[in-house]
Design a protein around this nucleic acid. Structure first.
Length: 128
DNA sequence: GCTATGACAAGGA
DNA sequence: CTCCTTGCCATAG
């Protein structure tokens, strides 16, 4: 399986999101070391997220909205999966992202091979 | 190596 | 609020 580090790290980061919490695509991109690759995160989840082990439904856009258009993984399905975990989703697919946002501990980020300076940036953006 | 493609993000109209 | 534009960058072909 000659998969890229990027893909492996995205999957790993998404699996870190706890039950009942959510992260944005940009947040995952930041966590894997490529701050502006949010759209690639969506692409990875679209292709490889549905493996039964990766909670793709816990990833939404930073505006707090469900943004999948995939016919196999519909917005309604994502809404239902989130609601099963206690995440409130409005009829217009809006979520209070700050209320449910995954705020990883700095130690957990070290598992993703990031240097300390970079971890400070991640913390500054999402943990404050 | 180049072009096209986006489950994005942020800012403007 | 919604819609559009620009910036972005990993893959696929």
């Amino acid at each position: 399986m000659g998969e890229s580090k990027f893909k492996q790290k995205v999957i790993k980061a998404v699996r870190m999101i706890p039950y009942g919490q959510v992260a944005s695509y940009g947040q995952i991109a930041l966590m894997v070391g490529i701050p502006r690759a949010a759209i690639q995160v969506g692409w990875i989840l679209h292709i490889a997220g549905d493996d039964g082990k990766t909670p793709w439904w816990r990833v939404i856009n930073n505006a707090g909205r469900i943004s999948t258009k995939c016919p196999e993984h519909t917005p309604l399905l994502q809404k239902e999966l989130l609601e099963e975990e206690g995440v409130e989703v409005t009829g217009k697919l809006n979520i209070d992202i700050e209320k449910y946002r995954f705020r990883p501990a700095p130690d957990a980020l070290k598992d993703l091979n990031l240097d300390e300076r970079y971890i400070e940036q991640v913390i500054a953006k999402y943990l404050i």
